[in-house]
C-alpha cells in the first residue's frame, strides 16, 4: 500500500514527522558500509560502530533508512536492493522498536534515486545509539573488498 505524501514546509522541504502509514511491525533497513564495522575485544568479533546509527547534522538531520515494505511492494528483494554501493551491508529494525526509543520514523522519498527512502528523526544520545545497536538485526553482512 503506497504511503501518503509526507508533510512539507513552505519551501517544499519534508519536515520531520512520524508517518502513520509505517506500522510498528514494519521493517526499517539501515545500510552499513564495511567501513563502519569495528573489532570488539569483549566479544572477540566485529560489530557495527555506533557511527552506523548516527544521524546527519543540520536542522532536519536524521538517519537515512530504506522502508522494507515499500521495496517489497515494488517487487524487489530488499536484501539485494540495498546493495549499492557494492560490499554494503545492512541492519534492520522494527519501526515500533525505534519509536520506543523516542524516535520518529518518517517517509522521505528521493525521486528518482530512491523512492523507498525513509528517515529516522530524534535525539540520538549515546544511550539511544547503544540501544539501537543492541536491538538491531544484522540483515546483510557486508562483504569487504579484497
Amino acid at each position: 500500500m503506497p504511503l501518503d505524501p509526507p508533510p512539507r514546509d513552505a519551501n517544499g522541504e519534508i519536515v520531520p514527522h512520524d508517518h502513520p502509514g509505517i506500522g510498528d511491525g514494519e521493517g526499517v533497513i539501515r545500510r552499513i558500509s564495511p567501513l563502519l564495522w569495528v573489532y570488539d575485544e569483549k566479544i572477540q568479533a566485529e560489530r557495527p560502530s555506533s557511527m552506523a546509527v548516527k544521524p546527519s547534522s543540520g536542522p532536519n538531520g536524521g538517519m537515512s533508512v530504506d522502508l522494507q515494505h515499500l521495496i517489497e511492494e515494488a517487487g524487489h528483494d530488499p536484501k539485494t536492493f540495498i546493495l549499492t554501493p557494492p560490499y554494503i551491508g545492512a541492519l534492520r529494525f522494527l519501526a515500533g522498536a525505534l519509536r520506543e526509543q523516542g524516535l520518529k520514523v518518517g517517509y522521505e522519498p528521493i525521486i528518482p534515486a530512491n523512492p523507498f527512502h525513509g528517515e529516522v528523526w530524534g535525539t540520538f544520545s549515546k544511550k539511544v545509539q547503544n540501544k539501537l545497536l543492541s536491538i538491531a538485526e544484522i540483515f546483510v553482512v557486508p562483504n569487504k573488498p579484497k
Partner: peptide, 27 residues
C-alpha cells in the same frame, strides 16, 4: 585505535578493549 567515517565529513576514533570502550567523535 579504529577510525570510522561519519555521515557529514566527520569521523570517530574508537577503542574497544576488554577493559573499556572509548569513542571520540570528531564533529
Amino acid at each position: 585505535p579504529q577510525i570510522v567515517p561519519g555521515p557529514d565529513g566527520d569521523l570517530q576514533i574508537e577503542w574497544h578493549t576488554a577493559a573499556m570502550d572509548i569513542e571520540l567523535h570528531v564533529i
